[in-house]
Design a protein around this nucleic acid. Sequence first.
RNA 1: GGGCCCGUAGCUCAGCAUGGAUAGAGCGCCGGCCUUCUAAGCCGGAGGCCGCGGGUUCGAGUCCCGCCGGGCCCGCCA
Length: 633
Amino acid sequence: MCREGVLTIKKLFKEAQRLLAEAGVPEARLVPPRSHEFGEATTAYPMEKAGMVGKRPFELAEEIVSKLGSSELIESVKAVPPGYINFYADWRRFSEHTLSEIFRLGQMGYASSEIGEGKVVLVEHTSVNPNKALHVGHARNVYLGDLVARTLSKTGHKVYVLNYVDDSGVQMASILLGFLELGIPASPPEGVRFDEYCGDHVYVEVSRKAETDRTLEERLRSLAKRVEERGSGEFRYAREVAEKVLSYQLMTCWRLGARYDMLFRESDVVASGLWSKTFQRLLEAGIIYKAASGENAGCWCVDLSGHETLSKEGDEVLVKSDGSTTYVARDIAFALWKLGESDVEIGGRVWGRNPDGSEILITDTDTATHLEIPKASMVITVVGSEQRRPQEVIKYVLKKLGVDGERYLHFSYERVSLSSESAKRLGMREVERKAIHMSGRRGIYIKVDAVLDELKELAAQEVRRRHADWGSDKVDEVSEAIARGALRYSLLRTEAEKAVVFDMREALRLEGDTGPYIQYSVARAHRIVEKARDAHLQPSMRKSGDLVKEEKLLIRSASYLPLVVEEVAKTLRLRQLLTHSREMAVRFNEFYEKCPVIEGGESAPFRLALVESYIIAQASLMDIIGIPVLREM
RNA sequence: GGGCCCGUAGCUCAGCAUGGAUAGAGCGCCGGCCUUCUAAGCCGGAGGCCGCGGGUUCGAGUCCCGCCGGGCCCGCCA
């Protein structure tokens, strides 16, 4: 899709910049002001420059303003103490331009852009061990990764989403140990999901037994090694169990709004020969060595002595003394493949489809067809901050192999822990700590589906109260959408590098700074549009008189939207999308209170256009954020 | 011990990248608003040594240094 002309808000900035250039200060930097009182564009240039030319900032500002000419979208420019220059929009023109732009580009186009220029980006997220159901900590990973993917694909990037399935680690092996050697039934009781059965019952049970039975650790290790041997019975069985768990995990992921292009099985890193090829390369590049003595005797290790900080912590083991690989080894090989820096062909097949109908591929070394992915200009791996070290090792190795490390980005985030209150509800006794880390092994976690179900029930109560006439299907559909919007917003509202303390009571809120607040504003807007239709009211992008404050602020917030999205695509400060979505919703609610539409007299047609444009702009942003849009709630 | 992240209102969080105009929300608390488009909303109020100390600057919540408090990493786990 091609944009006709320049975006209105950008045009306003361009005009302001041109005026400044004509006044002799082309270097003045314009930014959006933090308050509407300071106009639509502002510069602190006089304060930065005053000292150097020996003038007082405010005088310099006035001097510059006096030299400014006029332009189409800017009505006035003011010099303001202590030394700002503020540009104010010509609201008649600015609003008309903005509204027509929103209508022209529509919900699919308004928030999107082409700045990605079709660059291929691989985003890896989710990557939950296939031995359990997703808990709320995993949900943060899915939401963050999915939002990165959504944002980038809306801004002209070609995005491929990968889910790395660790079917060859110890966690997987412990499930197999339970089934094969400890006599735990391999199928769950009636009505219990397989992923929940493995995580809640099998994994916890095996971990518990391992505490008293010291031989289990050794049996587990030898089982894990056999799982890595392509063609062994254990290899096949592990893949079978993993795929089964995965199929249930993905149901949860879809409920979270995520989608995937490819499921990459860790067992295939070794089985496909990707690892052995990578090993050869590392060997030839002289990055690895086999330790003859010391604590790593018999292991192949990465030489980290050249790394500024990692060198202090000792070298990284890639191949254990028993010949099996470590997670970091497999991840290095995988990273090379993701970056298109490996010529090893990976077999694969179609696994299934996302709810949106797109195909999901899965690696499968037994298949003759090869998976093809265009070379990625950037690989983004969404992994918790506790994995900073291994991720840094990967990056270091990539650089040593001559790959541009800037192409490999670790999108790091802090983990989700449970508030002591929520932990108490799970039967935890030690509550003196403020937050307790979730642990699959100890059975301390809250499953995502359980949270969504509770949220949904809460929403359903409210929906039924408001709409006694609705059938159960409609109540179900709407309350599910509210629950999804609420949880997504609540787990994304904290900046990724900050730890989240999950509190059930807090998560179950549907008012205030929440997803439903935004959904509700759109539902209200839809109701106005319906009533307007009944009243045969036609929208108009022009207003006869001056715009009132609430009208201006609503348009203003919508006009900045495309700018915000482009900014986030560059910085990946995802939170700003939520902040802006909320800002628009707040502006709409203020407008809603103060400005009657249907009974708005002369202003009615213009206000109707405003309401319709709000729906388009907000919905286009919600499409990116992944909050379901509702016409009624 | 070494490395990284966090510390802003009673609680949960914005603002810090790119220093600048009275430090913003939500929850909770107090007080208002439903004969007019959905009150999951709106309006008002109380509530802040921006962890502490120093530095840079005309100007620091934002940048630099030190300290204190909390978290994470430093495994032949992933």
